[in-house]
Amino acid sequence: MSADTTDGELLARIGRGDEEAFTLLWRRLSGPVLALGRRMLGDDAAAEDVAQDTFATIWRAAATFDPERGAPLAWVFTIARNAARDTARRRRLTVVGEPPELADDADGPSEIVAIESERFHVHAAVASLAPRAREVIELAYYGGLTQVEIAARIDVPLGTVKTRTRNALALLARSLDRVEVR
């Protein structure tokens, strides 16, 4: 099992009780799930509840995941979104962007779900990038550094930084093809 193991393969292994696969999926997707929880609930502690509940459900239900009925990331996204809504009820929080009267609606406004699904998929794709590629993308987008500044920061030639950036963005663009909203 390695960083190349697909999410679907990890879920299949988790469904058979593979703890190593569960740990790998946690390392891969806990950040995107936490980010989703923070965006939906606006509360760091509540987002941790979302992550905990999401992965507890994944562990429990992975054996029921059917790849013919949807993509692995879409399945995890649905679990995480439901966990966020459940956490909102428990903590009496409002789900950001959802009117309170829709709190019992299983779907919610579809455009919000679609946007969050895209963000989740892109975050998951970033989290799955090779470390060197992820580094340049995060320094560019979240560190606010220019390509020249990134080259100086990580001490590699400018041309290498540019190549890593281009390749990483091309990989991230492909993640949009996998977005499913259920």
Binding site: L34, A35, R38, A51, R119, H123, V126, Y141, Y142
Partner: peptide
Amino acid sequence: IMREAGPIPEPS
């Protein structure tokens, strides 16, 4: 999306 979604948090 990268600009809207913000950084990916690291779980503690």
